[in-house]
Computed example of a mutant assay.
Amino acid sequence: MGYRAENLFRLLKAITPTILGLLGVIILAAPIRLFEGFAPTPIIPLVVVFFWSIYGPDSLPSVSVFLIGFVQDLLTGGPLGLWAMVYLFTQFIVMSQRSYFLGREQKVVWVGFAFAAAGAGIILWLVMSLMSGVLLPVRSLVLQLAATILIYPLFGAAFSELHRRVLVEA
């Protein structure tokens, strides 16, 4: 492999988690109706932030997490900075508990993700309720968080394979 190809490959490895987060934002913002609107679209960027904060924190710096959240705010029409704040807060909390999660069974990590998703949901609900001046209904947010929590094992396994085969072994 040539010098330029090696550098390009190294760059792609370095920005893979950021690209995954941005792809998750695009999927979330796309007008996709899963099962004819019955199932809400999971918050894939939250899965990306959680996973890479544990298994590859150097691959997903805070600047990337901010960018993912900011792009999500732009594409979904949310208040600018809200998702960035939620993702940065999630990254901070998860990285503070990283040593606990490393080496644990995936069931334990999944429960940790459920708590992180619930925390993110509470922050979102509180901020949006404060901004609107009324307590907003939580049903749709709870359903979206439930869908996100349920898909975590699938994405966690895929990201683990990607991390092991491409980012670590290559």
Score class of each variant (00 low, 15 high):
46 L>D: 01
27 I>A: 15
60 L>P: 14
60 L>G: 12
31 P>I: 00
46 L>R: 00
50 F>M: 04
52 W>A: 09
23 L>E: 10
40 P>L: 11
50 F>S: 03
40 P>K: 09
20 L>I: 07
53 S>C: 09
44 I>N: 06
40 P>N: 01
51 F>D: 11
21 G>R: 02
59 S>Q: 14
27 I>T: 09
42 P>K: 05
49 V>Q: 07
35 F>H: 01
53 S>T: 13
40 P>H: 08
55 Y>R: 14
30 A>D: 08
25 V>P: 10
28 L>S: 14
48 V>Q: 03
33 R>A: 15
37 G>D: 06
38 F>W: 03
27 I>Q: 02
28 L>Y: 13
59 S>W: 02
59 S>R: 15
61 P>V: 02
22 L>S: 13
60 L>S: 13
48 V>L: 09
29 A>D: 06
56 G>E: 06
29 A>V: 08
56 G>T: 07
39 A>D: 00
44 I>K: 04
44 I>C: 08
51 F>W: 15
23 L>C: 15
60 L>V: 13
49 V>D: 11
42 P>I: 06
45 P>H: 07
22 L>C: 08
32 I>V: 15
49 V>S: 10
40 P>D: 01
34 L>H: 03
20 L>E: 01
54 I>L: 12
55 Y>N: 14
43 I>W: 12
25 V>G: 13
43 I>E: 09
21 G>M: 05
59 S>I: 01
53 S>F: 06
54 I>W: 09
21 G>S: 10
36 E>W: 06
19 I>D: 00
37 G>Y: 12
39 A>K: 00
43 I>Y: 11
35 F>G: 00
42 P>S: 08
40 P>M: 03
32 I>H: 01
35 F>T: 05
29 A>P: 12
58 D>S: 14
